[in-house]
């Protein structure tokens, strides 16, 4: 599988060895980190939850699609689940290729699609003491108060990192 979950810190040193190839001239990676703010609120920690069976299938499909669309050698995506602190790595994408341009393009494609399509959810805990599921709570509030302006999370651009 080109996509997996882990409950432990992502071991990037070990993961990058899975991408090595003598015909690769380089490797590009993306790390998503837990940030201390989102949409104007102070965030203190995050919880990630996933429908793992479908998310692995979907994530594997995304990386497979990248391998087909771009002339790259290897690609892999690893996503954390569970409770994460500020600065922790939430997701890692690595791509090796003969040339750098394709590696950058494929890496971008993979992280964008994973954020958009994989059934993974993130609950933010705020300094104020409350918490909320990203992309879910504001929609729900807006449904109760139809005149409140809101952006619907599902099809908007990736919201963080």
């Amino acid at each position: 599988m080109h996509f997996r979950f882990t409950e432990q810190a992502i071991d990037t040193q070990s993961a990058r060895t899975e991408l090595q190839s003598f015909s690769a001239g380089g490797y590009v990676s993306f790390e998503g980190w837990v940030r201390d703010f989102n949409e104007g609120r102070e965030v203190t920690r995050l919880e990630y939850e996933a429908f793992q069976e479908l998310a692995v299938k979907e994530g594997h499909g995304i990386v497979t699609e990248a391998l087909r669309r771009f002339p790259i050698k290897h690609a892999l995506c690893i996503h954390r689940i569970g409770s994460l602190e500020l600065g922790d790595m939430a997701v890692w994408v690595g791509v090796s290729a003969a040339h750098r341009a394709e590696a950058f393009d494929a890496c971008r494609f993979i992280i964008d699609e994973v954020k958009l399509r994989a059934p993974i959810w993130k609950k933010e805990h705020y300094r104020s003491g409350d918490s909320g599921w990203v992309n879910c709570e504001r929609c729900a509030q807006a449904a109760e108060h139809p005149h409140t302006q809101h952006r619907h999370g599902r099809h908007t651009a990736p919201n963080s990192k």
């Binding site: 996933a50 992280i111 954020k115 993974i120 599921w133 999370g153 599902r154």
Partner: peptide, 10 residues
């Protein structure tokens, strides 16, 4: 059956 709320991975 699984209902899938708006996702927020990454």
């Amino acid at each position: 059956v699984v209902f899938i709320p708006p996702v927020a991975g990454g």
